[in-house]
């Protein structure tokens, strides 16, 4: 069972055995702070593998970049058939519902990997 609380903690299991994702992300190293509404997670990524996913809150987080997403918009993003404007990370950026902050080079140089990974969460919907 995946709950809102454990949502991103499930990512290593969803991502690390996917061979296609491993190829797209093979040069990716980053510490990514993910904030969905008031909830936060830290993803420690090395060579495209999520070595650690930790649940916040964090007092003084150090990270490569942060992804901050509106909670309601992310719930819609997770739907199996997302509506227009909620179907993609860049769609959320377009509608000012996703904000990026920090060194964005790892994000844009591996944009397809990040899109794949967040879309993976649709395979483990929140209960």
């Amino acid at each position: 069972m995946v709950t809102q609380d454990s949502l991103l903690l499930n990512l290593p299991a969803l991502v690390n055995d996917d061979r296609a994702l491993a190829r797209w992300g093979r040069y990716l190293d980053a510490d990514v702070l993910v904030e969905i509404g008031a909830d936060s997670w830290m993803l420690h990524i090395h060579q495209g593998k999520i070595l650690e996913a930790r649940r916040g809150p964090f007092r003084m987080p150090s990270f490569t970049f942060a992804i901050r997403i509106d909670a309601d918009a992310f719930t819609e993003f997770l739907r199996p058939d997302p509506v227009p404007g909620r179907n993609d990370l860049m769609a959320l950026v377009r509608h000012r519902l996703l904000r990026l902050e920090g060194d964005l080079h790892p994000f844009f140089s591996h944009l397809i990997w990040f899109k794949f990974v967040f879309a993976k969460l649709r395979e483990a919907p929140i209960t």
Binding site: D81, P82, P84, N87, D88, L89, M90, A91, V93, L104, H105, F108, S109, L111, I112, K115
Partner: peptide, 26 residues
């Protein structure tokens, strides 16, 4: 978004596909 990400020697042209992928209907 910052269009400069589309033309950097240290970012592969894969980014162009990544930028537009979500513009298509699922």
């Amino acid at each position: 978004y910052d269009l400069e990400w589309l033309h950097r020697p240290d970012v592969n042209g894969e980014v162009c596909g990544g930028i537009v992928s979500g513009l298509m209907a699922p």
